[in-house]
Simulated scan of single mutants.
Amino acid sequence: MPRTERVKGQARTMAKTIDYYFFTISPFAYLGSAELERVAQDTGARINVRPIQVKTVFQETGGVPPAQRPQPRQDYRFVELDRWSQARGLPLTKQPAHFPVPDLLSCAAIYAAEEQGGDPLRLAHAILKACWAEERDVFDRETLHAIAGETGHDADALIQTAEGRPMAQKVEQMTGEAIDRGVFGSPWYIVDGEPFWGQDRLDMVARKLD
């Protein structure tokens, strides 16, 4: 149930929120995207959609890109991708044609959707799906333009906004904020100051919200 606090003798409902930090080229963010939305709907929580840049996060927190990890870690990552794609009932290509790719524009597009009153979570899910289930290049401007239109946004206006300096600054700002809050992986959820790393922690996120 939502928390309440007493303000001048009256009870005021405290909105429940999930701060959702993720990389737009993260397979585990893709696998958890629909489940996160379900958790939010079931608990009445609002999701703050915060895409962040993987390269900056890894550089600042000691992360290593998948291809540079020791072979046993790479092998186990594929095991987990198989396991969770089956558990979630979602199609997934473990080695998509367009991965890794730069992520600034895809992050900026999601913030542009939010600024224009669109649905940033829907766009985020579509971008993740495009990379991991459809083998589309989410670095490509025309691909992102098409995805924006497919998700009900004004694609021309959204991409134009995403390519502007203010949205790039927004991505940089939110990436820095994430690092300051201890984020080092994707997906990452924060509820009432408590961090949860990984889509396999969404059941714990749900319990925290309840």
Results as ranks from 00 to 15, higher is better:
142 E>R: 12
89 G>C: 02
68 Q>A: 15
104 L>N: 05
188 W>Y: 12
118 G>R: 00
18 I>A: 09
123 L>I: 08
163 E>K: 11
105 L>G: 10
10 Q>W: 01
91 P>D: 01
174 M>Y: 12
65 P>Y: 00
75 D>Y: 01
11 A>Q: 15
37 E>S: 11
86 Q>C: 01
167 M>L: 09
1 M>E: 07
10 Q>L: 08
159 I>K: 05
25 I>D: 15
32 G>W: 00
143 T>R: 06
48 N>I: 02
19 D>N: 13
5 E>S: 09
134 E>K: 14
68 Q>G: 09
43 T>L: 02
137 D>M: 04
45 A>I: 04
7 V>K: 10
83 R>D: 04
134 E>I: 04
24 T>C: 14
164 G>S: 15
197 W>G: 09
115 E>Y: 09
172 E>Q: 15
60 E>A: 09
28 F>R: 03
137 D>I: 06
70 P>F: 12
96 P>R: 07
104 L>Y: 10
121 L>K: 01
79 V>I: 14
173 Q>N: 02
85 S>Q: 08
88 R>M: 15
28 F>C: 07
64 V>I: 14
152 G>W: 01
190 I>G: 06
191 V>M: 04
197 W>S: 09
53 Q>W: 01
90 L>Y: 00
207 R>C: 11
49 V>H: 05
9 G>A: 06
156 D>Y: 02
47 I>A: 04
57 V>E: 12
203 D>C: 03
171 V>T: 12
169 Q>M: 05
179 I>F: 03
154 D>S: 13
135 E>T: 02
75 D>G: 07
44 G>Y: 07
190 I>E: 15
93 T>A: 10
183 V>P: 13
16 K>A: 12
207 R>M: 09
52 I>A: 04
133 A>F: 00
160 Q>P: 04
184 F>N: 14
13 T>A: 11
46 R>V: 13
123 L>P: 01
84 W>G: 12
76 Y>S: 08
201 R>F: 10
58 F>G: 12
136 R>S: 03
8 K>G: 03
64 V>D: 08
123 L>W: 05
35 E>P: 00
